[in-house]
């Protein structure tokens, strides 16, 4: 799969909600008849998916905050969001 360009603006899919669950003390991604328990890294990415920020902005933000190589972050973001896009939870 080729990575989407940096200008792409990812958004939660229609009917998808990302929220903190007080009972489990963890973030959950709720979608039509399925749900995901994102790991810590995925949570940091999803927190930046707001339908406004572009992939480029998200990658810059994460690379800066976590002091990580940009191309590595870009690959992780593309893989994580691409997987959720295939399941209809994210639109790219």
């Amino acid at each position: 799969m080729s990575a989407p360009p940096d200008e792409t603006v990812p958004a939660l899919g229609r009917g998808v909600k990302f929220r903190f669950d007080e009972v489990r003390q963890s973030w959950v991604l709720l979608a039509p008849e399925r749900l995901f328990m994102p790991d810590e890294q995925a949570v940091e990415i999803l927190k930046l998916v707001d339908g406004v920020r572009s992939l480029g902005v998200i990658i810059d933000d994460l690379a800066g905050r976590f002091n990580a190589p940009r191309d590595l972050v870009a690959r992780d973001v593309a893989t994580m969001l691409g997987g959720l896009a295939d399941k209809g939870a994210i639109s790219l």
Partner: peptide, 9 residues
């Protein structure tokens, strides 16, 4: 909700 259910069908 108190128990931790996330989705109701």
């Amino acid at each position: 909700a108190d128990l931790g259910v996330l989705q109701v069908h």
